[in-house]
Amino acid sequence: MTDAVDPPAERLLHDLGITEPGEIDVEVIACAVGAAVRYCRLAVGDARIVGLGDRAIITVDDRASRVRQRFSVAHELGHWHHHRGQQLICRGAAEQQDGAAGCEREADGYAAGLLMPRFMLEPLVAGVPMSFDLMHQIAATFGVSTMAAALRLADLHPAAFALIVEEADGRRWFRRSSSLNPRWFVRSAASDMSATADRCRLPRANVAFAAPAQQWFLGQGVRDAEAMYAIDRVACGRAVHLVVVK
């Protein structure tokens, strides 16, 4: 089977007999694949892995939050699975070469599959509308950050939606769900989303309201579509905008 059909992180969970979110103990899983996890102060980055042969040591910054630590361990296990024997130096996204950035995406994908496996997550979201409440529920259930839960839902939730993220430094990026019309494009300005939220006096906690889809998207047929919009503010100063097409 290909990794797309039978993802390696999920194969590992099945091999270990892990069937519930509460059983996903990243330190135990790491030990099962020959990696020991230790926690100490790191001068740079959240985590690193050093391996030799079939053994490795994952070092995680002991100042990070527990959800960050768990994702960091899972991310390094992604490197251990996909990139064993390679020498990689993880830097900020802006400094990475294309090859290194691709390796980081692979490791992130492995981490998402290990911490929020499809076979556990999909039954929990079946028939449940996409919302910030669902993101927070998934984050709490699987012990991950709200942002990690949101990105995983973009991969697996059946709704057509876009996540538009504003970073504290003003950078903006977006993630579209797999069900969103591939011919629709997120507007670069998105009708000045922060101003829209302020004008509508949306509180910090999310409150959804209906609006024309063309306020956020460009593309054939968008004029006839409606959307539900909400904004939430999560860790690290991020503002996350959720636009769900009705």
Rank of each mutant, 00 (worst) to 15 (best):
M116T: 09
D6G: 00
A30K: 11
E23A: 14
A225E: 11
H136W: 07
V67H: 14
G170T: 08
C90L: 06
A112R: 15
G102P: 01
R70V: 05
D25R: 13
L242V: 00
M147I: 10
W184P: 06
R41C: 03
R63P: 01
A9W: 12
M116C: 11
R63S: 11
R175K: 13
A148H: 11
C40H: 14
S145R: 03
W216H: 01
R233G: 01
R204Q: 03
A107W: 11
A126I: 01
V28C: 05
V44E: 08
R68F: 12
A111L: 10
I164F: 01
P158S: 02
E104I: 08
P123D: 04
G22Q: 11
R172M: 10
R91D: 03
I24Y: 09
D169C: 03
A111S: 07
R223H: 07
L115S: 06
A35Q: 09
A227Y: 01
V222Y: 02
A35P: 04
D46P: 05
L151R: 15
E95S: 15
F119D: 10
Q215N: 03
G85E: 08
R238C: 02
H14S: 09
P158A: 03
Q137C: 09
A32R: 15
V60Q: 05
L88R: 15
V243Q: 00
V60K: 07
E23K: 13
V245C: 02
I89D: 12
R68K: 14
A47C: 02
A149D: 05
C200S: 00
A211V: 05
M116S: 02
M193S: 13
Y229L: 05
E166R: 14
T59E: 13
G92F: 07
R187E: 09
L12F: 12
A160W: 09
A139V: 06
A64T: 11
H82E: 03
Q137K: 14
Q69F: 04
E95L: 13
V245P: 00
E76K: 07
G78F: 08
G170D: 05
V186T: 11
D192N: 07
V60I: 15
R66F: 11
V165W: 02
M228R: 10
D6A: 09
R118I: 02
G85C: 07
I49H: 04
M135W: 14
I24N: 09
T2K: 13
A230Y: 00
S194Y: 03
I57S: 06
V67C: 13
Q97A: 07
Q97T: 12
L163Q: 06
Q215W: 08
D98G: 02
A148W: 10
G45Q: 05
F161A: 03
A126D: 13
P203T: 03
E95P: 01
L16Y: 13
H75Y: 09
D62R: 14
R105G: 02
R171E: 12
I24G: 05
L202E: 00
A210V: 00
V222L: 00
Y110M: 02
L12M: 13
A190M: 07
G92W: 05
A239S: 13
L134Y: 13
N206H: 10
V245I: 15
T196G: 01
D98T: 14
P7M: 09
A235G: 04
L242R: 00
P182A: 07
A195E: 08
H83G: 02
F71M: 11
T2N: 14
Q96I: 00
D224W: 04
D169P: 03
L42E: 05
R201M: 02
